[in-house]
């Protein structure tokens, strides 16, 4: 079952097309990474999926509720961490949470227990009565995350949750996201932090006005770069390039990281053939490693073309 399903979702602002024909499905209980450059339309997409703004065309179903027809129900079932924390500086952390809990129709007792639960989880309980204006950026971000979860939403939209945080605070937030996933919540994560997306996301969508590609990080790597093997040879690998390229099962070869990166359709079967051919030609083969591409490679490859 999908937590989020969109079909042809489109949003225009006057003549400007912000989101074009977005069709995606986010399975229940998964972490979906929504990646894209600045101005790609990610925030507009999130706003549409949270029933904050309407689409120009297309349909969407969020938490089983139809966008446009059940907007209030959608807002009740999703939590959102906006780009900026948007907290009331003059109020304490607890006052901020209690106010939002009331807007989500939580009873006073439930509001307090939820606030305590999340403030403790995020290490803010001791500062609960302090005015938010005196909080660090990391503390504000954590408090905003707590706010987005007060009403136990099935789907949580997190827009750049670790942006600008120090490594320790980022780690706390990432661990917290993993805990949320373990609880079975669906998380829609907008981020520029690609290692973070690689670490946290079950599925990734690369987006620039329209969805360029989606799948698991591994699928994206395989689709874009294929599978392959990195050969480590004694001495300069360059002279062996043509030898490798001449093999009939090799799809491509290039110099990379002091070795030869060889693209193969089926490395499990073709690696022994490759090794035999090189040794037979006189090469001193030291190591054979699976060819890995970072998510950053995938992302840059996808967004580089206009």
């Amino acid at each position: 079952m999908n937590a989020i399903e969109t079909t042809g979702l489109t949003r225009r602002f006057g003549q400007r097309l912000a989101v074009e024909d977005l069709s995606l499905a986010v399975p229940l209980g998964s972490v979906f990474g929504f990646l894209g450059p600045n101005g790609a339309g990610k925030t507009t997409t999130v706003r549409m999926l949270c029933a904050l703004i309407g689409p120009t065309a297309g349909t969407a179903c969020v938490a089983g509720k139809r966008l446009g027809a059940e907007d209030a129900a959608i807002r009740r079932n999703v939590g959102i961490l906006t780009e900026t924390p948007g907290l009331y500086d003059k109020l304490s952390a607890l006052e901020n949470l209690r106010f939002f809990a009331r807007l989500y129709d939580l009873s006073e007792a439930r509001a307090l227990s939820q606030a305590e639960h999340y403030l403790r989880m995020l290490g803010l309980w001791e500062r609960r009565n302090d005015a938010v204006g005196g909080f660090s950026k990391g503390m504000r971000q954590k408090l905003a995350i707590a706010r987005s979860l007060l009403h136990d939403p099935a789907i949580v939209f997190l827009d750049e949750p670790t942006a600008g945080l120090d490594p320790q605070a980022s780690r706390t937030v990432r661990d917290f996201i993993k805990e949320l996933r373990a609880e079975g919540r669906t998380i829609f994560l907008t981020t520029h932090n690609l290692p973070e997306a690689d670490e946290l996301c079950d599925q990734i969508g690369v987006f620039r006005t329209r969805l360029l590609h989606s799948g698991t990080p591994e699928q994206l790597r395989a689709t874009l770069f294929g599978r392959g093997t990195l050969l480590r040879l004694a001495g300069d690998p360059a002279p062996w390039r043509d030898t490798v390229a001449a093999l009939p099962f090799v799809q491509g070869v290039e110099l990379r990281d002091g070795g030869l990166a060889v693209r193969l359709s089926n490395p499990d079967e073709q690696n022994p053939l490759l090794a035999r051919a090189l040794v037979a030609a006189g090469a001193n083969l030291r190591y054979m490693e699976p060819l890995e591409h970072s998510l950053e490679d995938v992302y840059l490859e996808l967004v580089k073309t206009p």
Binding site: L52, I80, T82, G86, L87, Y104, D105
Partner: peptide, 14 residues
């Protein structure tokens, strides 16, 4: 100016 409108509008508040 405090950018609190979006979180506020994201609630079920009409």
């Amino acid at each position: 100016t405090r950018r609190t409108l979006e979180p506020l509008l994201a609630t079920p508040l009409a």
